[in-house]
């Protein structure tokens, strides 16, 4: 899977490259507008991470160009502005997602994963891992063919873990993913425990392997 990161902040870009590469994504980097233009016209990517404020031009016009060329690349806008107008117009032009800075890398990875699944498996988007099967479209989970009833948040967490397999995810990244801005308002992210405990219990009871590991007391890892 090839990912193009269009981001002028080299340090941020390098973190993304490090994190995503370990997920077996092939990352390329463009740090300004002309470079980005050159890359998107010469190569095909599975997903493009697009910063809107670039030296030499506006990221929005890159997006327009991509859509004008009918490129299939998935696009996630990454913006420091977090403005509703940008989000709305970005999604209207054809971006697949919008992520405001600052964000957790696991969040980014989960969103990339979700977009890639959507692009590549339009009709039957089923994630299979040994005995575990997750049907993303119908939002159902089966272990050895037997349905497991998960709440919306538990399913959300499961997909988040699967999208970040073998990565250590901090509690705050999980809290933010589950509760969005609400997590922001609480210093105490303990509510995450309850959801994870339930998810783990339901999967184990259904006969699923223990993939979800707790690390250092406050990090989690979906180990495959």
């Amino acid at each position: 899977m090839k990912i193009l990161i269009i981001e002028d902040e080299v340090e941020l870009a390098s973190s993304m490259v490090t994190y995503l590469s370990s997920q077996h994504y092939l990352c390329e980097l463009a740090t300004d507008y002309p470079q980005a233009l050159e890359k998107i016209s010469n190569y095909q990517y599975d997903c493009i991470l697009l910063d809107l404020m670039l030296p030499g031009g506006n990221g929005m016009s890159i997006l327009k160009l991509l859509k004008a060329q009918n490129k299939e690349d998935g696009v996630i806008i990454i913006s420091a502005k977090n403005s509703l107008e940008d989000k709305v117009s970005g999604l209207q032009i054809g971006a697949d997602d919008y992520l405001a800075k600052p964000f957790h890398l696991p969040e980014l990875a989960a969103r990339i994963y979700s977009i890639l699944r959507r692009k590549n498996f339009t009709n039957s988007n089923v994630i299979a891992q040994n005995e575990l099967k997750i049907d993303v479209l119908s939002k159902s989970v089966t272990v050895n063919g037997i349905a497991v009833m998960l709440t919306k948040k538990e399913l959300d967490l499961l997909l988040f873990f699967v999208g970040n397999r073998n990565r250590v995810i901090s509690k705050s990244a999980l809290a933010e993913h589950i509760s969005g801005d609400l997590a922001d308002m609480l210093d105490n992210h303990d509510f995450i425990y309850a959801h994870i405990k339930n998810l783990k219990k339901k999967l184990l009871e259904a006969g699923c392997g223990n993939y979800l590991k707790t690390l250092y007391g406050n990090g989690y890892k979906w180990e495959v």
């Binding site: 902040e9 340090e11 941020l12 973190s15 993304m16 490090t18 994190y19 420091a80 800075k101 600052p102 964000f103 957790h104 890398l105 696991p106 901090s170 990244a173």
Partner: peptide
């Protein structure tokens, strides 16, 4: 902030 956040995640 995004840089610090990403470095921590890494």
């Amino acid at each position: 902030l995004a840089i610090v956040q990403s470095k921590l995640d890494v």
